[in-house]
Design a protein around this nucleic acid. Structure first.
Lengths: 207, 207
DNA sequence: ATCGAATGTTAGTTAGCGCTAACTCTAATC
DNA sequence: GATTAGAGTTAGCGCTAACTAACATTCGAT
């Protein structure tokens, strides 16, 4: 009851005061939770990581769950999928596919840690995962439309445009996730250029 | 000290008795841990899921960690990567890439739940993740060799063969993981044929 | 210099979890 | 029929984590 914590009070208000304490706590919590999962992170750990007393964490956010909520609200940016529109296409296949892929990786990387949390907590808090997925679906739709248009122009091989879009996007997703999950476990590949892979896929799709 | 649990005693012995109790516990633990992560699963839950008393779980495995160990030992099959050898290739590009992709998916799906655990616990127990990764690396090596050979035959476009192999494998990985993580969250795509995507990639790689 | 807000410190409470102990029940084996 | 192994029941120990309360300290703005 009346759990209007300090954080909420400020968060709702005109605020915009620096409040680096809450920031630090959020960032450290994001780091920890994306590594070990919500349940496995303790308030003590969070406090220590943020170089703050445990009490401060409770005073600032009120509860552990509230921290996660704040993280989502703050860091899960409804990515710039909108930036892909007809206007941006050059209708040069390879060029466009590279642009799309780069944008997708930008989105994925921006939400890197959120993605990890969403994977770890996909069963306990499916909303997070669903929100990210919805975003990806929108992007897939746009790319599908693009392929449909390109087929009409005779610049892309006939076929189910959604399947074509999926081929491209799944490659990109696979590249992203494998990199994400292998961080600190295996060394990254050298000479791992996105352009090369996109060129292969573009060639496979061109007429 | 002297923690030779019942399980170990039996596991080491000539055993092979049905022992459906231990089996049930292991299976249910695998399900639960692959959904929520090791830490978030309780012994009570496991016992309930296996329709067994909590004591039985402790008597059978001795500890929670021992259950995870048993799961790994039992279910993490060092996959049939070996089944890909020069012998199996037809050196018809599309045909071979499909065969490779199907095999890869078979391996991934066999270890489905283990994969999930390895993702969830990649920071707390990196060995699991590393073992799976090593396996994938071997497969990647074989595929890389294949592309090198095909380049020599003039059947594949010149270029870094590892990059070419990565393009194929990452697509497959992306397809697998997205399906895995979206289980129960989003509906699967209809008309989602592996052959179509492989055909695109094969075309992109062919001379 | 004073006041007040933000933070620290300390000492709890509560609840759940991993795990143990001791006893009971059941059913197949000898 | 007695033995025994597998499983259940109950009680509880020790610990840790989330969270609370009360008091102390710091420090910048007035």
């Amino acid at each position: 009851m009346l759990v209007t914590t300090n954080y909420r009070k400020r968060g709702m208000g005109l605020s915009a005061r620096t409040d680096s304490t809450a920031d630090k706590i959020l960032e450290c919590s994001l780091d920890l939770m994306s590594e070990k999962g919500y349940k496995a992170v303790t308030m003590k750990e969070i406090a220590a990581a943020a170089s703050v007393s445990e009490m401060t964490v409770f005073r600032t956010f009120g509860s552990k769950q509230a921290i996660l909520d704040a993280i989502i609200e703050r860091y899960l940016s409804s990515a710039p999928v909108e930036r892909i529109g007809r206007k941006n296409f050059s209708y040069e296949l390879e060029e466009d596919l590279l642009m799309i892929s780069e944008l997708y990786h930008e989105v994925l990387n921006r939400n890197r840690k959120i993605y990890l949390i969403s994977i770890l907590e996909r069963k306990t808090m499916p909303e997070i995962h669903r929100r990210l997925h919805d975003n990806a679906s929108k992007l897939l739709q746009r790319v599908t439309e693009y392929f449909r248009a390109m087929q009409e122009k005779g610049k892309v091989v006939p076929g189910n445009p959604e399947a074509q879009a999926l081929t491209l996007m799944r490659f990109n997703y696979g590249k992203f996730i494998s990199g994400l999950l292998l961080e600190g476990i295996a060394p990254a590949f050298q000479d791992d250029r996105l352009e090369d892979a996109v060129a292969i896929i573009a060639k496979g799709l061109s007429t």
